[in-house]
Design a protein around this nucleic acid. Structure first.
Lengths: 272, 272
DNA sequence: CGTAATCTTGACCAACGTCAATGTTCGTGG
DNA sequence: CCACGAACATTGACGTTGGTCAAGATTACG
């Protein structure tokens, strides 16, 4: 079952799409104040009191940009990068000794990046930009006072982690007990749903910047088999995916097919 | 890939080993004070200040016993069971519509049970006793004041969740990118290691109460294929598993084989 | 317009699931 | 203490899912 890698694949995924781009890692760009954060206005975060929001805003130290393919956090070393993803897509992923890769989760705007390093001073996985990305850099040292001062914010942060854990459980079940077509269907629905809840899409179509190889790494299949599953789903009229555009004609139909169930009134990340 | 189920299997796993046992669900048994908790004395938990320990001890409301096969928490409904596993083994697991089952994690003494219900008022998975089990029942309503009063305890709780997440990531990689023998080897090492860090085993052998079917549900394989993998591991001299007794001659050899890496100075659950 | 990356497909092979039959262990009642 | 039966463990034979290889079509982008 371990899908081995060719020389070519390995070098392709080192920086997909990014060739000789001169934009270097973590460029500072014009900042956005938390109080006027469009994500927060969209209801992507749980509502905060004025006082809490002030403390959160004080944590933001910078606004950085990364090119597609760049690593925001790399596997193995210690250190304290701590971000909120503001714009674009990223992936938490783990690379094995044999070069094969598992995408642990796809990160969307509003998701927190780097909590493990902050709390555990260890990083078992990397975070890589899938598209061009901007992030809010957070001052990790302030998290202690934040938690001490705002108990309800700490609870919210905890609840967000627990919710992440539930999503992780769902993915585990997906890989352990479900077939290729269901895996793909589930992943696509999950992404669509998360985007929708953050007010980032409207119609029944949306942009899906993931390549086939990345889909494969996310659901634990080979690139070729992902193709087969996609074709099967298309044949059944469940999805349409061409030119990076995903269309799901009937969300409920696909949900039934892939065993996806809608999460409760989910508020996601706790802070910006 | 979805391992379907026979009629017989389904009814077997409903209450494995427990037939007409009269011991009912959640019997109260003699309690143990947190201050003298043997687990804490073994260093299973992160050290607490006297003040913190007092608050934690105040949360403990009862000490309950469950028979093997009983559900401590059942899938789907709302409600606030909140425990620390004190003695015995349990499993978080999710049952699919077709009757197949995924074990999301094996719970050992010291692990927290029920945080999702407390924080999310939703339970996407059940928790089932694998052996006879006793738990410390916690008063869920007190968690808010606990977090507000003891910031460092809240951070610890958060860190423990993040650490859990890392283990979940490892399991995902396991199912997505590794073969049957590696999956089994990894699971066994992980269990052994967690037991050892809590001072629950000493030699190179230990009791492994998991049945073959449960191993299978944990690593996303069929019962039969688990057998094949076990045989292969035994042939290679990596493990010996007979009569519920697991022996790992060379931990480092098995670790190398299965891609297992030892976690940092891990302190696990934050409270009792 | 040309080159490299990605997508797509077919043919073939390995890993894993399913079915079914036979031992083994263990608890229970005689 | 022994005999019985019900889970549980183990194994072989065979079918299905998914991986690998390799070639061509299409797209993205300079």
């Amino acid at each position: 079952m371990p899908p081995e890698m060719t020389e070519k694949d390995a070098q392709a995924r080192a920086a997909p799409g990014a060739k000789s781009r001169s934009k270097a890692a973590g460029q500072t760009t014009p900042s956005v104040a938390c109080q006027f954060c469009p994500l927060r206005m969209n209801g992507a975060f749980r509502p905060l009191s004025a006082c809490e929001l002030e403390s959160v805003a004080a944590m933001k130290s910078d606004h950085l940009a990364f090119a597609p393919g760049e690593e925001l956090v790399s596997q193995g070393q210690a250190g304290g990068a701590f971000y909120t993803l503001f714009e674009g897509w990223a992936a938490r992923c783990r690379t094995l000794a044999d070069g094969s890769r598992q995408i642990l989760d796809v990160l969307l705007p509003g998701d927190l990046i780097g909590l493990p390093q902050v709390l555990l001073s260890r990083r078992a996985h990397a975070v890589r930009a899938l598209t061009a990305v901007t992030v809010c850099a957070l001052d990790a040292t302030r998290i202690e006072t934040l938690v001490e001062r705002h108990g309800s914010l700490a609870l919210g942060l905890l609840a967000a982690r627990v919710e992440d854990m539930e999503r992780a459980d769902a993915r585990l079940t997906l890989l352990g007990r479900m077939g290729a077509e269901q895996r793909i269907g589930y992943l696509l629905l999950d992404l669509r749903d998360r985007l929708a809840r953050r007010g980032l899409i409207r119609g029944q179509s949306c942009l899906l910047p993931l390549r086939r190889a990345e889909l494969a790494d996310a659901v634990g299949l080979s690139k070729v088999h992902v193709m087969r599953a996609l074709r099967a789903l298309r044949t059944q009229g469940l999805i349409e995916l061409r030119h990076r555009t995903l269309t799901i004609p009937s969300e409920s139909k696909l949900a039934r097919f892939s065993g996806y169930s809608y999460p409760g009134s989910g508020m996601r990340c706790a802070i910006l």
